[in-house]
């Protein structure tokens, strides 16, 4: 085990995949200079672990700021023998390449009757919560969940980031990974050896019996904090489930948990309408209505653009307080003064 940050874990997965398979290449904006800290081991080109030094410019390639052609090129390369990892930096840059994602990456295997596969990974960071304004704060994974043919991962811990990314790189299907920047600094012990976490297997982040909270991306640590607070103050037992991958989604794990607890809160940083929380809620309403002891409650960002000012932005995403308020609601507990104060802004 080594203590790794979220970004360090991503870098480790990329290095292991590059070592294991020469068909793996990385390209994107600023990958040679290791600007985001996932394509190198040091601060200078001569430091040990620098990807350009280790793998050469044939496999580590800077690109121009041309997302549409980068994504299309990755698709063409993936259909003809490579396994590219494309670093698109900010997730809102994906929109520049929407045609390639929707019409080529997602459709080609199906449209052409399975003649070729699309082993490619598109990495992007969600810079929300960091006062970067409306163009850089997007959490767009639900949009892509609406495109059959893409697989989508949203890791919330360094261990999951490493294991899921490695599986994504080794997968023969296109995978989009959405990495929350506010988790970048998170650190934990991560296995040194190679390991793979299957796509479509949820992780039970905390076991409980009274209520299920399905939490996504940066909402996972917030949900865990809410669970601890409620255990201490009310003696409530909260189960927290991190789906980790949204396509495929581990619907059975969520269903099993709701059968156990009879109550569901879903928390995610994306917008409310047609979000992952909406899909999970609908699934449980269809499949487990009879076991529900209370209406499902979603905790999401509102259907609103993200403002710049820190004083405005901080109210936009699920927090431990808004999640706690939702849990109290499904358990019919009185609102705590602190939680309800924080929750009022996003109700």
């Amino acid at each position: 085990m080594t203590v790794m940050s979220f970004l360090g874990a991503i870098g480790a997965a990329q290095r292991e995949a590059m070592d294991a398979d020469e068909r793996v290449i990385i390209f994107g904006e600023d990958v040679e200079a290791n600007v985001y800290g996932t394509t190198g081991g040091g601060k200078t080109r001569s430091d040990k672990g620098d990807f350009v030094q280790m793998y050469g410019r044939n496999r580590i390639r800077n690109t121009p700021i041309s997302e549409e052609s980068m994504v299309g090129a990755a698709a063409g390369a993936a259909m003809t023998g490579l396994r590219p990892i494309v670093d698109l930096s900010y997730s809102s840059f994906l929109y520049m390449a929407m045609d390639q994602f929707v019409n080529q990456v997602a459709k080609n295997r199906y449209m052409f009757g399975g003649q070729a596969s699309m082993p490619v990974v598109f990495r992007s960071a969600m810079f929300y919560g960091l006062n970067t304004g409306a163009h850089h704060s997007d959490r767009p994974y639900p949009m892509f969940m609406n495109v059959p043919g893409l697989k989508i991962i949203v890791p919330s811990t360094p261990t999951d980031a490493k294991g899921l990314l490695r599986t994504a790189i080794d997968s023969d299907d296109p995978v989009l990974t959405f990495e929350a920047c506010i988790l970048w600094g998170a650190k934990e012990d991560v296995p040194d050896e190679e390991f793979w976490i299957p796509l479509g297997e949820a992780r039970t982040a905390r076991e409980g019996t009274d209520v299920t909270v399905v939490a996504i991306s940066s909402s996972v640590p917030e949900a865990l904090a809410a669970a601890e607070a409620l255990a201490a103050s009310e003696g409530v037992s909260v189960e927290v489930i991190d789906p980790r991958t949204l396509v495929p989604l581990d619907r059975d794990a969520i269903l099993r948990s709701v059968h156990k607890t009879g109550r569901l809160v879903v928390a995610e940083p994306a917008h409310r309408t047609c979000g992952a929380a909406a899909e999970i809620s609908a699934h449980i309403a269809e499949e487990a209505f009879g076991v529900l002891k209370a209406p499902i409650v979603r905790v999401t960002a509102p259907d609103m653009q993200i403002p710049f000012s820190p004083s405005l932005e901080k109210q936009m995403y699920p927090t431990r307080h808004t999640i706690e308020a939702a849990i109290r609601r499904v358990l019919d507990l009185p609102a705590s003064s602190e939680a309800s104060q924080h929750a009022a802004a996003t109700a």
Binding site: G72, A73, A74, A77, M79, T80
Partner: peptide, 29 residues
């Protein structure tokens, strides 16, 4: 694919980078 035809695109212009990607693949390999 048996004759190297990587597919038609109903979206005008959309398949252009696909050919470029195949060329990238050939170049890297």
């Amino acid at each position: 694919f048996a004759v190297g035809s990587l597919g038609e695109s109903g979206i005008v212009g959309s398949s252009i980078p696909i050919a470029m990607g195949a060329a990238l693949s050939a170049s890297v390999r």
